[in-house]
């Protein structure tokens, strides 16, 4: 029986697929996975999952992302525009930055008290 192995490096990270192990049951899979997939890598946690329990949909089953031209989703057109003509936009952004900075400083000083 094949068990897919997922390793988490640090608490809070995603468990990422790192390979698999052959094992008769969950306990043995956990034992083997420790050696095979965590012995030499920084590891906080391992998952073992029976391969047969993994649901899959692949490129033959689905047209991932559709088939029509969706390049409009990428707003590349605006990347190289000089925005200096829109002073009010620039001013507004500056204000928001300033407000965020003040808020952060206030929080920090509260933290010190």
């Amino acid at each position: 029986m094949i068990w897919e192995v997922f390793r988490q490096e640090k608490p809070g990270d995603y468990h990422r697929h790192v390979g698999n192990v052959h094992a008769p049951d969950r306990e043995m899979a956990k034992l083997f996975a420790q050696i095979q997939h965590a012995r030499r890598m920084q590891t906080n946690s391992l998952w073992v999952v029976p391969q047969s329990e993994v649901g899959e949909v692949d490129a033959e089953d689905a047209t991932f992302g559709g088939r029509t031209d969706k390049s409009y989703r990428w707003a590349m057109t605006y990347n190289d525009i000089d925005a200096s003509f829109a002073e009010e936009v620039a001013d507004s952004e500056a204000e928001q930055r300033e407000a965020a900075r003040t808020r952060r400083e206030q929080l920090e000083s509260e933290g010190e008290v």
Binding site: H22, M28, L31, Q36
Partner: peptide, 11 residues
Amino acid sequence: PTIESDLALAN
């Protein structure tokens, strides 16, 4: 008996 048990015992 298997690659996995080989690695585990070697470990």
